[in-house]
Amino acid sequence: MSKKFITPVGDEGIYTLDTGSWRTFKPVMLKEKCTNCGLCMIFCPVGSITGDENKIYEIGYQYCKGCGICARECPTKAIIMVRESIE
C-alpha cells in the first residue's frame, strides 16, 4: 500500500461508484470507420476510453455513464449510441 499511494488512504482504499449502471444508451465503436485519432479519449469525462501504445482506442463499459460526448465529437462518426437492453 505504501508504494501505491503517497498518503495513506482510507479503510477501503479508493471510493468508487458503480456509474456504469446509470447508462441508458451505450457507445459502440465501429472499428472499420475509426481512424484512431484519439479525440474520443480526449473528451471522455469519465476516462472510460483508453488507448494502447499502437494508438488503438477502446471503450470500457464498467464506469461509462453513457453521456454520448464521444459519439457526437467523433469526426468520422465511428461511435454510435445503442439503447441498453436487459438481457
Binding site: Y15, T16, L17, T19, F43, P45, V46, G47, Q62, G66
Partner: peptide, 26 residues
C-alpha cells in the same frame, strides 16, 4: 497532447457521482 493524455495515468477515482457529461469532471 493526445499522446501525453494517453500515456499518463488517470489519478481520479474511476466512478464518481458527477452528472453525465460533466465538464468539471473532464
Amino acid at each position: 497532447y493526445i499522446d501525453l493524455i494517453r500515456q499518463s495515468e488517470d489519478l481520479v477515482t474511476a466512478g464518481m457521482s458527477a452528472c453525465q457529461g460533466c465538464g468539471a469532471e473532464l
